[in-house]
Write a protein that binds this DNA or RNA. Structure first.
Lengths: 287, 287
DNA sequence: CAGGTTATTGCGTAAAATGATATATTTGCA
DNA sequence: TGCAAATATATCATTTTACGCAATAACCTG
């Protein structure tokens, strides 16, 4: 029972473009090409009319599209029906994320999942966001919430759930002026993550501006940055989502500094292999 | 798009017996066992309740049975619809059989096929029935009509279309008496195939009876046997189907000689591999 | 006609399926 | 109770299939 070819077909029918469709399916163009060819062989008709520059559904392809959608819906339906009946998808899923994420993104997801699969236990672990990918890769956690790293390991599947701008913040009191000139920058004390995606982006930003920042403190955890900035120790860089969920958000202000830093692409990570497990797959399909 | 697991499931749901179900699917029991396990993994529920002695559908299995049937029907339907629309399943299929078979069994099959797929050309070759299996195995012919040999090559799929008794015949004039005693047998001239399944069965029959027959002629082709017998040269052994289609059938008579020879199991042969081809598959599914 | 884009195809590698054999557990019968 | 038969599953070696990279060929655009 393998319905991947149907998904491939539908993806290609939507995009009419092998490159984009294959990317959407997380496969290579050649695999997609052959997947379609096999379908066509089994059906005995060609589903797409394609020259080297364009792709279009044939009349048979249009008919098959209906079938493919229905077939996938029905499979999904029987799957859910059976799972629902034996409410025993007993087991547990471990989820790792930062404290902030547990307040914001995670809440809705877990509520839905809990409602749908009440017998599945979720073990929630919070900690350093920068460890998230490693913990998933090594299999210590099933799922993690993390910002998408610049290059995603191939064995990781990522599902974006939102963008959060990376913003400069200063104390609300205004006791530290927004830096303008290069000179300002070299005088203003900075409070930065000691590592991680955010730190890398900030470093690149400074390099592009040819500024050597005066680093006052390097800390672990965005929440700590907010604390220190609110105390007037310097200006910092945090994802806006952290501010939205911080009790100190009225003690700091977002600074209008350009160019903007590239936003965080926050989403869920899971090991590709684990998507075969019914539990993990059930979770993933709720997204 | 692989629906084999569904067929496996349905087969097991019918028989509730791994051995018989796997035989029906032309796979080994272990393959069937794993096929079911994989389905259950994907669904997250168990479809059969089985101890080491019995197999039974679970309540989920019963629901899934409905789904499986429908899914197969729908797949078959879209397949036929698409094929029918593009009446171009253009291509050709080569069929090999004996002259007799071309008169009897083949007629109905070809008529249905021609009606369903008018654009497929059928190349019909007639010849020695004993070569049929070899021609299919070597790929020289797509499909052949043949009696099922005592042991079928594993790569050949056989579909029975009828039994034809293997009968002793003598001249209608009665000028040759039906042999009774061992002595009679050693005096009566026999006209036999020089090789082939029929000849083997006859040889075994004589061996079991401890008779050494007096062989008058060994010929190629059952039609030739009928001719010689009708001329009164001896008694022979042919499949009854040959008589039914022979213009000489009133010149010979069937002799009441016991024990009966095992009947021919006549059917179609195809190379397992070729069933993947849409043309061959279309033909095969009409049976 | 040149340059870039894009579906397809060869090919080497990795993963999966398959069937023969072995194992464990249960049932039937003595 | 103990022995034998039956049978679903596990293991392993082999074959088959899938996958992605890189190269190819065909086509559009300027």
């Amino acid at each position: 029972m393998d319905l991947k070819p149907l998904q491939h077909f539908l993806s290609l029918a939507e995009t009419l473009h092998f490159g984009r469709a294959s990317a959407a399916c997380h496969i290579s163009p050649s695999t997609l090409s052959r997947s379609i060819q096999q379908l066509e062989d089994k059906l005995g008709v060609s589903l797409f009319k394609r020259d080297n520059r364009s792709v279009n559904l044939t009349s048979e392809g249009i008919k098959f599209e209906k079938y493919a959608r229905e077939a996938l819906v029905q499979w999904s339906a029987i799957r859910n029906e059976l799972m629902a009946e034996s409410k025993e998808l007993k087991g547990e899923i471990s989820v790792y994320c930062s404290v902030t994420a547990s307040y914001s993104f995670l809440y809705d997801i877990l509520r839905r999942f809990r409602h749908r699969y009440p017998s599945i236990e979720i073990k929630l672990h919070t900690g350093d966001p920068d460890s998230a990918i490693d913990l998933v890769t090594s299999g210590k956690e099933d799922i993690a919430i993390s910002a998408r790293p610049d290059q995603l390991p191939t064995e990781i599947r990522f599902h974006s759930i939102g963008l959060s701008p990376l913003v400069f913040i200063g104390p609300a009191s205004g006791e530290i002026e927004t830096p303008q000139s290069l000179n300002d920058w070299s005088r203003t004390p900075m409070i930065l993550s000691e590592k991680g995606i955010g730190r890398k982006r900030v470093d690149r930003w400074f390099t592009a501006k040819s500024v050597k920042p005066r680093i006052y403190a390097q800390v672990a955890g965005n929440e700590a940055i907010v604390s220190m900035v609110s105390l007037g120790l310097g200006i910092g860089v945090v994802p806006q989502i952290v501010l939205d969920n911080s009790p100190l958000s009225d003690k700091v202000q977002i600074l209008d500094i350009k160019p903007w830093l590239a936003a965080y692409d926050v989403g869920l990570c899971v090991l590709e292999k684990k998507l075969k497990s019914p539990l993990i797959q059930a979770f993933w399909e709720l997204l």
